[in-house]
């Protein structure tokens, strides 16, 4: 069985509205990021891969299995939705146990795996706490634990750090990297920091279309020589903003330190610098769409 997700000519519709247009992707093992704005179609693609939405048009296979064979697909995929919620009156352990049953695990398997997983996600001490009483971060960790309980080959995580505070976000990213192993892990996100730490390959989705598909380093190369940093007066900011796309900005008193995109040196004082993922993403969006 090839450890690969193959998406070919995927077109997805909600009613008359087309939300995915001619998506072609091959996703192998490792961490794969799907980046895009809100409403770009990321969640729709995730839900198709998780068999929550039937394919409108196109061919999708997961590890050689056609997506229409739902039962087999669900055996090898784990899904953490953007909004993770579970029966509030169950304890953490009961929730994991029940989800283990639904995942097709035997009692012996569940008894063996659940405590280990809860320990891994730092929820073992909370195993008797009701799900309804968990914080957002704890719920998210419970979500990832249930997604990998049955040791899926494919892990689909939609907006992994949505709703988490800064510390929880870092912890969660580290956790994901830890559990990735030799799985196919697909992360959909609009937060650049989610990708920076661990994703090697990335696809950028905009208005339902893939506008970039490749490695992170290749994406960075696209923006090479186009990213400048400068420190300007606050009063000059509106003029510069009108002329150049700004990728980041930090205010300090009367001055602003910023990074901008330009084919050549925009003005005196601007320095060429190494592109980051955020810069490259913004460059891509500007290049494809003409404006940000």
């Amino acid at each position: 069985m090839s450890a690969e997700i193959k998406i070919s000519g995927l077109n997805q519709f909600y009613g008359k509205k087309q939300v995915l247009k001619d998506i072609n992707l091959n996703i192998g093992t490792g961490m794969f990021a799907l980046l895009g704005r809100n409403g770009a179609g990321k969640t729709t693609l995730m839900r198709v891969l998780a068999t929550l939405l039937p394919v409108s048009r196109g061919v999708v296979t997961v590890c050689g299995i056609p997506i229409s064979m739902e039962a087999q697909i669900r055996r090898i995929t784990g899904y953490l939705p953007q909004e993770f919620s579970f029966y509030a009156n169950m304890t953490v352990y009961e929730a994991m146990d029940y989800l283990g049953v639904l995942s097709g695990l035997s009692k012996a398997d569940r008894q063996e795996k659940i405590p280990d997983l809860l320990a891994k996600v730092n929820l073992l001490t909370k195993k008797k706490v009701k799900v309804g009483a968990l914080s957002g971060g704890m719920k998210r960790r419970l979500g990832i634990a249930q997604a990998i309980l049955h040791e899926p080959k494919v892990l689909i995580v939609d907006e992994p750090t949505a709703g988490l505070d800064a510390e929880e976000r870092v912890r969660f990213r580290n956790l994901l990297s830890e559990i990735a192993g030799d799985r196919i892990v697909i992360l959909s996100t609009h937060i650049i920091a989610d990708i920076e730490a661990s994703c090697e390959r990335i696809a950028v989705l905009e208005e339902g279309e893939i506008i970039y598909n490749g490695t992170v380093s290749d994406m960075l190369r696209l923006a090479e020589g186009k990213i400048y940093s400068a420190q300007i007066k606050k009063t000059d900011l509106p003029g510069i903003k009108a002329k150049y796309p700004i990728t980041s900005m930090v205010s300090s008193g009367n001055h602003v330190s910023l990074r901008l995109i330009s084919d050549e040196k925009p003005f005196e004082g601007a320095c060429l610098c190494e592109a980051g993922i955020e810069d490259a993403y913004m460059y891509l969006m500007q290049d494809k769409r003409g404006a940000i």
């Binding site: 998780a50 929550l52 669900r74 939705p81 919620s85 989800l99 049955h150």
Partner: peptide
């Protein structure tokens, strides 16, 4: 129990089909 659509979604992606449940 699955009136909450988020819970329903989570249960529907599992191996044991929701219909059987």
């Amino acid at each position: 129990p699955e009136q909450n659509s988020d819970i329903r979604e989570l249960v529907e992606v599992k191996y044991l089909s929701y219909t059987r449940v």
